[in-house]
Design a protein around this nucleic acid. Structure first.
Lengths: 340, 340
DNA sequence: CTGAAAGCGCTTACAG
DNA sequence: CTGAAAGCGCTTACAG
């Protein structure tokens, strides 16, 4: 192929006009073009390996089938799992993605947004690395938008986010159901917004069950810091029979600490971890029981929500999806030992 | 902004022709447009918040300033760190990225490539999740291409990849230099191409130093499997004084195993790990001494290589960059204990 | 130094 | 049922 073939080439080879080619290839030929000519067009297109110049098509139709993505670097870097899942869903639906990094500052957002709109993206996905409130810049109102892992405080923009508070509560319930009455909390800093929600959910269910609140131990989100924090918790007077970790790294640390103290999981100590998609919990024996973050489903939902809106052409009411974090059973939870 | 403003709007407001606007805004005005009119155009553009419709511009110039990315899911998923770094470099240079997943099958590659070329991407980056040989489909020859983390066996395409064999050798040297004469090897399956190269590099330097080859212990690339494998190695008769792990997960396992056996790192056991960018080594105390994979630099190099080629318009000779994997010093290596 | 015209490759009313 | 024409928003020779 010395030169990419055009619709004109197809028309010439098939012996029809350019418009006929366009109609046939866009599925609007029925009742307008004879079957014979339709076949001729299709054959010619195949022979020439014709694929339409999407740039020209986009200019003409003002539809690019490209989605813009606005994201930024959080405390734990970029939201790579969310970005990957979003891309997968979009590609399946026939949309490509154009990503821009933009710090959540007015200026940077406007700059990135300008790049995206000058590319005529059909819609925009805002993907936050951490659960947060997203204050939209004014220019965003000109294009369909869906927020992922963040919410619009004014509720003008649709959003998809995990219910982290319920996830923390679920972790607590898992332990209460098995009879634990004394739970320790290994958590990171509250500057991670989700951490506070997880901790709050846990304390809420403990309170509701008439149990004392979990003794919290704050730690850097690292394995070694988790070891130290868990050791502190487990060597205190009257130690807890179970630990909730707000993050998998801390759960790995808890396993180290337990082993060093001669405690078996789950016989002597139960552990439940919340999930930030680092895939560590499943690498331990027993696997850590996990309240997982459904990044894949959330990303799919967000992309589908946006694409549906684009395909339907309507402007439906703003929607907010709060996703349940499902439990992935491991072997790290058991009833507490009768005597300690 | 009810409607995005066009070059015509700017021309009207500035009182000049559309061509004048184009010349000024593209920096080709000197010696062609009066200073006063240039200022008028610039002012008008600013007032209208004009930014050119890139789709129209692309159609006219046949340059999109978009790079296509072809990638696929490997044994460890997508090469997310490489993808992220590539994007960063590209954005800095004024290029956006359009990513496609394509299994390394002829059919899938052609399909994805078709999508990319119909979008008129200026060039293509092929990013492999695992070091491998990449057999290019014929259609790739029509567009500038750079391979990242894979090489073209026919050497027709430029490529950027890490020197994994040298990385394995470096890990061995680190231990030999400190006086170790008995080294164990914790490695994953050879189906990860880089694993074989790392292991080979290690054995090569041991041999060159007149030492016995490292006793290999094969393990699934998981923390718990690493614990078992390291335990086997360390409880055998005449155990090694140092361990090379082909992957950070295995190094974490080695730390667990050492602790359980009452061995201190680095006093009783030295550990060096190779890196697949999981950021685990730095989370342990002491940090694991790491021969790191320079994903960021490699990605930047690949993107720059491609962009330079596009900007220069020339077709320079094929280049193959083999990247040195730098050592990130941790505290997990010391001289072996005199008596064991 | 400036402006009218052509054309990138498409799609879409519209006249026949 | 088909084909000639207009136009999406740009850039680039080219004539004045």
């Amino acid at each position: 192929m010395s030169r990419k073939s055009t619709a004109q080439d197809v028309a010439d080879l098939a012996g029809v006009s350019r418009s006929a080619v366009s109609l046939v290839l866009n599925g609007r030929a029925s009742g307008a073009i004879s079957a014979a000519k339709q076949k001729a067009v299709l054959d010619a297109a195949r022979r020439l390996e014709y694929s339409p110049n999407m740039v020209a098509k986009s200019l003409r139709t003002s539809r690019t089938h490209i989605l813009g993505v606005l994201t930024w670097r959080g405390l734990a870097g970029l939201p790579l799992p969310l970005l990957a899942s979003t891309l997968e869903t979009s590609l399946h639906a026939g949309y490509q993605l154009l990503k821009m990094y933009a710090e959540p500052t007015e200026l940077d957002q406007r700059r990135a947004l300008g790049t995206l709109t000058s590319r005529l993206v059909d819609g925009i996905l805002v993907i936050s690395p951490e659960l947060c409130e997203y204050h939209a810049v004014e220019a965003l109102s000109a294009v369909p938008v869906v927020l992922l892992n963040c919410v619009d405080p004014s509720r003008l923009l649709s959003s998809v986010a995990p219910d982290e508070e319920a996830a923390g509560a679920r972790a607590g319930e898992l332990l209460i159901e098995r009879g634990h009455r004394s739970v320790g909390l290994l958590r990171g800093s509250l500057s991670h917004h989700q951490t506070g929600q997880r901790a709050y959910g846990l304390q809420r269910v403990l309170l509701a069950a008439g149990l004392p609140p979990a003794v919290p131990q704050v730690s850097e989100v690292r394995i070694d810091a988790g070891i130290a924090a868990a050791t502190a918790l487990l060597t205190a007077a009257d130690p807890p029979t179970a630990l909730v970790c707000t993050n998998e790294r801390l759960a790995v640390g808890a396993f180290f600490a337990a082993a060093a103290l001669g405690l078996r999981v789950p016989e002597d100590l139960s552990v439940v971890s919340l999930d930030d998609r680092e895939q560590l919990a499943g690498q331990l024996s027993p696997a850590v029981t996990l309240v997982s973050r459904p990044d894949d489903q959330m990303a799919a939902q967000a992309a589908e929500l946006l694409i549906e809106r684009l395909e339907s052409g309507t402007d439906p009411a703003t929607q907010h999806y709060s996703f349940v974090c499902p439990v992935v059973e491991g072997g790290s939870v058991a009833a507490p030992a009768v005597v300690r």
